[in-house]
Design a protein around this nucleic acid. Structure first.
Lengths: 233, 233
DNA sequence: CAGTGGTCTAGACCACCGG
DNA sequence: CGGTGGTCTAGACCACTGT
């Protein structure tokens, strides 16, 4: 019997997804091959292929040559979130962004940093601490380290107008990055910068980037009280 | 002059990306059109199209009909993270997973929950609290609400063997989800469940799902001390 | 309105890997 | 080994939107 004649990879994708949701295709079950589906939908195989590839990218099905396409038994959905760009984040809230440099210093890299980034034993780094405000209330405290041997021009940048992140993205790209989130307790110093009480929970992001294996920078970002990172999917 | 003859969308993608990184294509600059690139690379336009589409998906370029493709001025990289599946998460650490139901109760939905999910005024919900252990040490405390009118079979499930999440993914799919992360302070109760001190920072995830607009479930997930959510990109 | 990306097609060859 | 998905091609039509 003729299926609906509406084509388009979006339709194919939505239709397969519907059948998965309704249990027509049960978890673990193998789906018809691309050729067969192309016939059913009355479209080219490439169209089916694109639909299935997206379903696979989004974690609904597993595809393997010869083995075919199977509905994932445990649907591991994945969500994408935008790496927070502080200025954009604040301005998106309709608030004015303000930046302030707290401290700037060239120093030998501390041991933990060398270990984390894989720095050379004698490496020197630029250490910056700064504040980001939304409407003049503290929003984020940034504790950043930049590898001078990979980004030598950092040594001569003042960082008194633009934050290190904005500066870095214009100076140097990166190829690998790692970001992790956790909850930490505010130290005495930090609590003053962020206008909170010592020991209060702080949402903390820690991010490292490399350029083809060479350590570029490391930052700890401490968010003021009440911050939430949200995403829909 | 002839460019390299190696084709493949992966090559095209990598080559364009390299030129972006090296500054050959500066931020904000417009790239050659697909036809032109196809000639340069000696391949079909569809091949270039796929390469460019992926670059766009990954946030390196912006594409618009008629306007062409531009290098993103502020590279907003996006990272994908897997929605944490507690059992898998713990077993991936090589530890044994254990689940325990703490409390189970059908109740009228509290006001904040109705507001958050968009529940009907007279809605009744199933409220569950449970613990997840890794190697018998507390890993996560779960505070979950399930909408009985959308998932009626929940009323008759005991939840004494399997956690609500594992049960739900087998019972009902969802179409929309929202997840947010924050740092909260451990309440007296919570600190006992997670074996920590009251007031200590707790990494907290809050997740809501809907099925075609109908509220399905809401959960607050409190992670034991020291938890980090990490992703590479 | 015209140029760009978005999508589809029909056919082809190939790599991989399950049986 | 043979079937499945992975990819490419040459060509086509179309939707959107900047100018």
């Amino acid at each position: 019997m003729a299926d609906t004649e509406i084509t388009g990879y979006r339709f194919v994708k939505a239709d397969i997804l519907r059948r998965i949701r309704e249990g027509v295709f049960a978890p673990g079950e193998i789906l018809p091959g691309e050729v067969s589906l192309a016939e059913q939908f009355g479209c080219a195989r490439a169209t089916v292929n694109r639909a299935m590839r997206e379903l696979s990218d989004e974690g609904f099905v597993d595809r393997r040559r010869k083995a075919g396409t199977r509905v994932k038994a445990k649907p591991t959905r994945r969500a994408a979130f935008e790496i927070p760009q502080i200025r954009a984040e604040i301005e998106a809230l309709g608030q004015t962004y303000r930046y302030a440099l707290v401290e700037r210093q060239c120093t030998p890299a501390p041991g933990w940093l060398k270990a984390r980034l894989g720095l050379a034993p004698e490496a020197r780094v630029l250490h910056l601490t700064c504040m980001h405000f939304a409407q003049n209330t503290p929003f984020q405290f940034e504790d950043r380290w930049i590898n001078i041997s990979v980004v030598p021009q950092a040594e001569f940048a003042s960082f008194d107008q633009d934050g290190p992140n904005e500066w870095l993205v214009q100076q140097i790209p990166f190829t690998e990055a790692e970001i992790s989130f956790s909850a930490t307790a505010a130290s005495a110093d930090l609590s003053e910068y962020l206008q909170m009480n010592p020991g209060e929970p702080v949402f903390t992001a820690e991010r490292s980037t490399w350029l083809s294996g060479a350590p570029v920078t490391h930052a700890r970002l401490y968010y003021a009280s009440g911050y939430r990172m949200t995403t829909r999917y």
